[in-house]
């Protein structure tokens, strides 16, 4: 059972930040999706829902998702639907049920750097940065690797608008389950960007596969079945695939090959 000693709902980020650094164990509340699991003792819970972080904004060059934006908002956003083949909405739409997606937040997910996340994988295939309130802006890739160096608040994610085509693929057995593996692929002109998540480790770029495909495509202007097969071998080798209850590492390797091929076929 959850144990919260004190609860505050600050009206500004600065106020929230002051609470955060005021004591050890101070915890930010995002969507609270997994908060109730297990027993947790939280001396001070800081609710971010009043700090104005629930928005999807379109700027000239970027789209910004406030940290308290829910997956439900992402799924229904007219703005997001216009970009990247609506990949962000498509990445979240199979997660459990809408009544959970209406609670799960962008910030809670990204800040927690969940390995099983479908959303992070999709986000990562775009040109995405995260804005931490005190420490400033970081590339998502850097943030996923390092997290926050000090207590800080994830304010928003910033996605650069470009005309990349993006595809999200996931393999799950039951439709209510977490993915055994997910993969996002983007095509930016003649270049490919590939991210694999739920390995079950955190989403990561398949750099060698990307390089291989980029070179092959630059030379041949097409990707033959043989090239796709080779790319599959590369992706299975270059990333680490682990085993857990949902799948073994061998199986995940195989899924990576299959999802990669299916994703490429959609953008070629």
């Amino acid at each position: 059972m959850l144990n919260i000693q004190e609860y505050v709902a600050p009206n500004s980020l600065e106020e929230a930040y002051q609470y955060l650094i005021s004591q050890k164990g101070a915890t930010l509340l995002g969507g609270c999706a997994y908060l109730n699991l297990g027993t947790r003792n939280i001396p001070l819970a800081i609710d971010l829902s009043r700090t104005g972080l629930s928005y999807i904004r379109e700027n000239e060059d970027t789209i910004e998702l406030g940290a308290m934006t829910t997956f439900g908002d992402v799924e229904h956003s007219a703005i997001l639907a216009r970009y990247f083949n609506n990949i962000l909405a498509l990445s979240v739409r199979d997660i459990v049920g809408i009544q959970l997606r209406n609670l799960v937040t962008v910030g809670g997910t990204v800040y927690s750097r969940y390995g099983f996340s479908d959303f992070i994988t999709a986000l990562h295939v775009l040109d995405t940065q995260v804005k931490l309130y005190k420490q400033g802006i970081f590339d998502l890739e850097y943030f996923l690797e390092n997290g926050s160096k000090e207590p800080d608040i994830l304010e928003k994610v910033i996605i650069k608008k470009d005309n990349r085509q993006a595809v999200f693929k996931a393999m799950r057995n039951s439709r209510g389950d977490y993915a055994i593996l997910n993969l996002a692929l983007a095509r930016i002109g003649d270049k490919f960007r590939i991210v694999v998540g739920a390995r079950p480790g955190r989403a990561a770029l398949a750099l060698n596969t990307m390089e291989y495909l980029n070179n092959e495509y630059a030379q041949k202007r097409e990707l033959s079945p043989e090239i796709l097969k080779n790319a599959g071998e590369i992706i299975a080798e270059e990333l680490s695939f682990g085993s857990n209850g949902r799948g073994s590492s061998e199986y995940r390797k195989e899924l990576a090959k299959v999802l990669l091929r299916k994703a490429i076929q959609e953008v070629i």
Binding site: N173, S174, R175, G176, D177, Y178, G245
Partner: peptide, 28 residues
């Protein structure tokens, strides 16, 4: 097809909740 049961080596049931023990949903 879906309802997989797993025990840890110490005899603890791992699939002891609906996140891990998947009964069919209406799309399954």
């Amino acid at each position: 097809l879906y309802e997989e049961v797993r025990y840890a080596s110490n005899g603890k049931l791992v699939t002891d909740n609906f996140m891990d023990y998947k009964i069919p949903t209406r799309r399954d």
